[in-house]
Each structure stands twice: as structure tokens, then as C-alpha cells.
């Protein structure tokens, strides 16, 4: 691996200063499972790593005002096992549980995972379905934006040089919310998905009509996406098997998959449609507020 400088700031202010000193040649690092890998492969050659590992205050999980906040340094594993997340955001528990292996989840952070901008990760599908927001902070101040405005292109986000993703904000779903999550893995259990889809539905009092629907998909294009046309078919409609089928069919033209080891673009389009429908069915088959399976 190439030589680089290493900075270990103790506060966000020190981190901003270190990032400013090296400009675009600096890269923030936390768990390292993404960036160190890219550096080992020669795909990234930052002149300076600014470690966020010693910065206090970025590792908390808290709930207030109907929102659960996860500090950027919370590991995937901790998010997966956190009882508050498990009770209020079981969809998120399920998504984090499916990332790579325990060994990777122990190191990879929730903030780093998003900032990495990899379109084939699992958590963004769930976070998009949950309408999550991300807090971006820099020496100039902070801004909070919806996650669906965060991604720009393949491994590219709206983060500016000197700006850090410091927190995730996830609204707690209303009572009666349902969810579905499917990571379609035709190869090995620790692989990236061929298609990952998460759905969050809110039904009316009778359970027959859909009040709100959000669908997040990853692995099917240059960025994680919301399937907005499929959502529009569901919103306000009576939930029949035909309607679910029609909604899922909309996904075919919302995804932009590329052919790779995990399947051809055509195959992935078919699978995106199929697994969106199944995730919707999964959501409707659940009792409201269904907790995730008790698995470690």
C-alpha cells in the first residue's frame, strides 16, 4: 500500500482543520473496511487519512421527537443489535444484519458505509424506505438532507471536501407501519446482493388501503434509488394482488442495472420486479410492527 500521512483528530473542529490542510488529497476514515480495501487495490491513493475513530460524540444511538439518531461512528454490528433500533426500526435491523459478515460489521460504521457511496450496499435500501436523513457537517456549519438527495452517481455523493457525514436521522414509522426486506443472493451468503429491496408501507385503519409507500432499491444502478413510480401506484390504492403486481412492474423502468458477475442487466431488471413484489407481499403478510427475527 502506498505511503500516506495519518491524522487522528480528537474533535470535529480538529478534523475539519486536518481535512482543510490536505484538501482533496485527504480522506476521512473510520472502520476502514471500504477505504483500506480500495487503497490496497490501488483504487484510492489519498495523501492523508484523517481518522475519525477518536472523535467523541459520534457513536451514540438516541431517540427523541419521533426520530432515532445514529452517530456516524456506530458500527453496523451495533446498529444491528441495538434494542431501540430493533424495537422501533426492525427494517433497519434486518438490513444491517445482511451486510457482509460479522467480522466486517464489527468494523464498518453506518456513516462510513453511506459516505462510501457504493450503490450495492444493503442499508441504503432500508434507509430510503424509512425516509432517513443525513447530517453533513463542516467548518462552515451543518445541513441535514434527505438520503434520497445524498447520492449523485457511482461512488459519488454530495459531500463536499472538508464535509463529514456525522449523523443519520431515521423517523420512527407510525403505528400500523409494515415493512419488507429482501436481499437476493444467488451466490454466497456474504456477497453483495444481486438486487436488494426494502419497502415500508402505512395502511389505513382497515388494512385494505395503502396510505403511504416507500420503496428503496440497491444494486440496480449507479446509486441507491427510490422507486417512485411504483410507490405512486400503491399510494391511496386498495391493496390487491393485482395492484402489487402492477406496482412492482413499474420498477422495471426505474432501475438501471449493469451486467456483471451477479447477472445480466435484463436478469436484474426481472429480479428487481420480482423481489419488489415479494417484499410488498412480505410486508402485507406481517402483523403490524412485526419485529425482526431474534437472530444474532
Amino acid at each position: 500500500m502506498h505511503a500516506f500521512e495519518y491524522r487522528e483528530p480528537r474533535s470535529l473542529e480538529e478534523a475539519y482543520a486536518a481535512l482543510a490542510a490536505y484538501g482533496e488529497d485527504a480522506r476521512p476514515v473510520a472502520g476502514g473496511t471500504a477505504l483500506v480495501l480500495l487503497m490496497r487495490l490501488g483504487l484510492a491513493r489519498p495523501g492523508c487519512l484523517v481518522s475519525l475513530r477518536r472523535i467523541a460524540g459520534l457513536g451514540a444511538i438516541s431517540a427523541a421527537d419521533g426520530v432515532i439518531r445514529l452517530g456516524a461512528l456506530v458500527t453496523h454490528r451495533r446498529a444491528e443489535r441495538d434494542p431501540l433500533v430493533g424495537t422501533r426500526l426492525p427494517l433497519l435491523t434486518e438490513a444491517y444484519r445482511h451486510v457482509a459478515t460479522v467480522r466486517i460489521r464489527n468494523a464498518a460504521t453506518v456513516g462510513g458505509g453511506l459516505a462510501h457511496g457504493d450503490p450495492a450496499q444493503d442499508p441504503p435500501a432500508a434507509l430510503l424506505a424509512l425516509d432517513a436523513r443525513v447530517r453533513l457537517s463542516s467548518a462552515a456549519g451543518s445541513r441535514t438532507i434527505p438520503l434520497h438527495d445524498f447520492y449523485r452517481d457511482y461512488y459519488e455523493t454530495v459531500l463536499q471536501p472538508g464535509e463529514l457525514l456525522t449523523e443519520l436521522e431515521v423517523p420512527m414509522p407510525p403505528a400500523g407501519a409494515r415493512w419488507g426486506f429482501i436481499k437476493f443472493l444467488p451466490r454466497t451468503a456474504d456477497d453483495y446482493g444481486t438486487v436488494t429491496v426494502a419497502v415500508a408501507l402505512t395502511l389505513d385503519g382497515t388494512g385494505a388501503h395503502c396510505r403511504e409507500a416507500r420503496i428503496g432499491l440497491t444494486c440496480v444502478g449507479p446509486t441507491p434509488i427510490r422507486a417512485r413510480r411504483a410507490e405512486a401506484v400503491l399510494r391511496g390504492a386498495r391493496l390487491t394482488p393485482e395492484l402489487l403486481r402492477a406496482a412492482a412492474e413499474e420498477v422495471r423502468n426505474e432501475v438501471q442495472p449493469t451486467s456483471d458477475l451477479r447477472g445480466s442487466a435484463e436478469y436484474k431488471r426481472d429480479m428487481a420486479v420480482l423481489f419488489t413484489r415479494r417484499a410488498l407481499e412480505q410486508a402485507l403478510a406481517q402483523p403490524a410492527g412485526n419485529p425482526p427475527q431474534d437472530r444474532r
Binding site: 476502514g32 473496511t33 480495501l37 487519512l49 481518522s51 467480522r103 466486517i104
Partner: peptide
């Protein structure tokens, strides 16, 4: 690249891939 598990060690009690962990971490 963090996939095979040969390099597994415990860091502060948690298993990690030592091939993706900098010694300074």
C-alpha cells in the same frame, strides 16, 4: 480483501479482519 477470514483476530474483544485494519487503528 476481507472475505476469506484467514486473518481474523480479536481487537478489543471483537473479531476483525486484520488485512483491512491499519495497525494504527
Amino acid at each position: 480483501v476481507g472475505v476469506c477470514g484467514l486473518c481474523t483476530v480479536l481487537l478489543d474483544g471483537q473479531m476483525v479482519a486484520s488485512c483491512l485494519t491499519l495497525a494504527v487503528f
